[in-house]
Each structure stands twice: as structure tokens, then as C-alpha cells.
Amino acid sequence: MTQLPHSTVDALVNFNRQAIARALNLLEDRRPNRQAQALTLLDTLSTLPASAHVVGLTGPPGVGKSSLISRLIEPQVQDGRRVAIIAVDPSSKVSGGALLGDRGRMQLPNQVYARSYAARDRLGGLSREAFSAVFLLRHCCDVILVETVGVGQSETDIATLADTTVLVVQPFSGDLLQFIKAGVMEIPDILAVNKSDNQELAQKALADTQAALSLARRPAPPESAAWDSPVLAVSATTHLNIGTLSQALSAHWQHLQTTASLERKRAAQHLEWGIGEIVHEVGQRGLAALGGVEGVRAAWNQQPAHWSVVRKLSVLLEDVQYRPSS
């Protein structure tokens, strides 16, 4: 692998935004020599602390996710924390193009790093590039806010990327609550009912949402039992409960660290990322050649624990390229 200048890594971990932008350009670049450089960069970074809290905000279009993000970053920036924002917008199936408009809907202080991605050919609300971007940014800043558009099941996608998932709805989002009740959708870590400007409306919406949650079938893995997803009535317009939402985010981050769930969660995310990359590189057939998702998971877990994600992934990819497709 190519050698990486120390200055680049130094600049990145010091939140130098010129360096971050160049590194993210590199991660997206599909030319083979750039890919090699990108892998070296990721590999080098994996030995360093990844201490940023990744918060994912998802929800249907028009519920005010961008405004909510604007509110959430204000106190963070005032406290001198380094904030990055990743926003993902859908791509047109016909033309492949995309309109990336979230920046314009946010009030971005000058100290923030923000980048928009098109979902491109990936289904669900995420973009393939967003995974490697978040992986990189975890080493560069204190908090990362990821905004995705999701309708129905694809809201769950964000959990493969975020440490803390916030589902944003507006009063009377009946459909989403149905998804939760039916167990189609995982329960988010925090549920925010935005646009609760009107007290009466907010109370009713809160009651509905809480009722839906109490009816939901929880898969209840043992470690998550301790976290009780809060439901909060908030308003980006009137600033209602923005402080409470920030506190809930910190509380969940605390919870992940004290229960060691963070490590487990991120390990699972890395595997998910790996599978995504494998499918992208070699397709479903290649994945089948590796024994499907189960096979990859087994092979992944057998690799030495101290290996970086990138190394694990490249070994698997090399492996699949030498297998005849069946």
C-alpha cells in the first residue's frame, strides 16, 4: 500500500476542513490508484481513536429534520465541540441525478463541516459513500449528525451507521406508528415529535406515539433492555424541548459506553459496511460464493480481532475474486 503523509492524518484528526474535504473526495474516487490511497488512509485511521458520537436523524420528507439539526448544533458549536453533518438525498432513477438541498435548509455556523451525498444506486435512505465518510469523520470530530430521508422500512437503515438513531415525525404520523406497532420497523433510540408548536396538538401526538410504542413487539436483545426510548415533543421553530432532546442524546451516548453496547454496535456496523462493499464489488453472486451473509459474518469473526476493518474487508474481497462463481 502507498505511504501516507503524516501531515494528512494530523490535519484530519485536528478537524482541518480542507483536509477532510479532500479525504472525502478521495474516498469517493473510483479510480484504482485513488482507491488504493483511500484504503491506506482508512487503514491508518483505524488505529486511532474513533471518538465521535454518530447521531442519525431520519423520518419522512417535510418533518423538519434540517431545522432540527440547525437547532441541535447551536449549543454544540457554542461549547466548542467539532461538528460534522452528513445529509443524504435520493437520486433520480431515470437520470441518476440528484438535488442536494439540505444545506440550504440548515443554518450552518461557519465552524461546522457539512457534506451532502446522493443515495445513488443504493436502496434505503443511505448512500454507500456515507458509510466510509462516517467512518473517517469519527476520527476527526466530536459529533456527527447524519440526516436521511426515509419512508417506512428504510428508516431502519440509519441504525447500521449511527450510534444513536432519532426518528423524527410530526403530529399524527399514523403510517409510521403502524410500522412500529407491526414490528416492521425497529424502535428508534429516541423519538422526536417535531412541529409540536401547539400544546394541545403536541399532547395528543405524544399520547398516540407512546401508545404505539407500548404496543410494539420488542425484539429485546438483553443489552438493550436497559434503554427505554424516550418520546419527546419538540419544535425547531419555537425551540421547545431542544435542550431535552440534546440531553437525551448525551444520555444515550453515555448508556452505550457504560453498557459496552457501543463496541458491539460498531462491530455490527462494520460487518454491515463490509457486506455492502462486497455486494457492490462482486454482486449477489459473489456474496453467495462466500456463503451469503452468514458466511461473511463467520469469516469476518474468524479474522484476528486486531485487524482493521479495511484489512478484514480487503482479505475477504481478495478471497471472493479467486473463487469461481457457482
Binding site: 474535504a21 441525478g97 440528484a98 438541498g101 444545506r103 451532502s116
Partner: peptide, 29 residues
């Protein structure tokens, strides 16, 4: 039209300062 031609388009609306535009160009690559 850029979107319909297949480009990925960052558009932030009106009344931006030159500084804001430069920041967006940098961050968005």
C-alpha cells in the same frame, strides 16, 4: 436541468455571501 441531465446538484437558495459559497464548494467537493 443539471439534475435531470444526471448531475448531483448542490443548491442552497438565494442571498449567499461569497464566503458561504466558498465554504460549500470546499465541504461538498
Amino acid at each position: 436541468w443539471c439534475r435531470d441531465a444526471g448531475m448531483e446538484v448542490v443548491y442552497e437558495g438565494i442571498r449567499l455571501s461569497p464566503e458561504q459559497i466558498v465554504t460549500s464548494v470546499r465541504d461538498e467537493g
